[in-house]
């Protein structure tokens, strides 16, 4: 005869089980999510490379007419500096120094915000000049690719602000630490993606390849 387990008394798992490391598994899970997100970036890059051709400008501007590599290098410095600032926040975390973690998160936030302000200004200038995404297939791809990265930065800033509040209020608990580690990967990954945007949109855009 089989016995029916009492659902109120049955022990279905051991809450103190230590085989799985919470921080490690959540970091790996978030990393896999980031890689799937990067496949969208791959699709956008593929689209951009296809549409970055005179054929797809519909008589509108080509890349060489709208990109400014020197200005783009300026925002690159801002972005990489923001990455470095967050790295230094991680070094402070390693030392268990909550105050320094907060200071470097604030610096990363300001630098990231600077990146978005300058980029926003650049795109506002384009729109004011009548250079909008619907003008041509090429411009649709250009706006989508660059602004997709910008939207990630925006969420990164929001996340930085949330983490600053959590570090301030909760301290460096396991829950806060794994979120800081996930934000580290997210934040650094934006710098990683920007290398390709800067190189293959802003730099090669001036080469008149097509």
């Amino acid at each position: 005869m089989s016995q029916i387990a009492d659902p109120d008394r049955a022990i279905l798992w051991d809450p103190n089980h230590t085989e799985h490391d919470m921080i490690e598994t959540r970091v790996l899970g978030f990393w896999l999510y980031l890689l799937s997100d990067a496949m969208i970036v791959a699709a956008l890059f593929a689209t951009y490379l296809v549409l970055d051709h005179r054929m797809n400008t519909a008589g509108g501007p080509t890349a060489s007419m709208i990109v400014h590599p020197v200005a783009a290098f300026g925002v690159t410095v801002l972005l990489f500096s923001g990455m470095l600032a967050y790295g230094l926040a991680m070094a402070a975390l390693k030392a268990g120094d909550r105050r320094r973690v907060l200071v470097w998160i604030a610096v990363a936030f300001i630098l990231g915000l600077g990146f978005l302000v300058v980029e926003g200004h650049e795109f506002a200038d384009l729109v004011q000049a009548g250079i909008t995404p619907e003008r041509s297939g090429f411009l649709s791809a250009f706006f989508t690719l660059v602004l997709y990265h910008g939207v990630h930065l925006m969420f990164g800033l929001l996340w930085l602000a949330v983490m600053a509040v959590q570090v301030w209020r909760q301290g460096l608990t396991a829950q806060v630490v794994y979120r800081l580690l996930n934000l580290k990967m997210f934040w650094f990954f934006q710098g990683f993606i920007w290398i390709f945007v800067f190189s293959f949109v802003y730099l090669t855009g001036t080469l008149h390849v097509h």
Binding site: E24, L93, K94, L172, A174, V176, V177
Partner: peptide, 10 residues
């Protein structure tokens, strides 16, 4: 959590 290897990578 500070002693975690992921944190100590910094």
């Amino acid at each position: 959590p500070i002693a975690h290897p992921q944190v100590q990578l910094a």
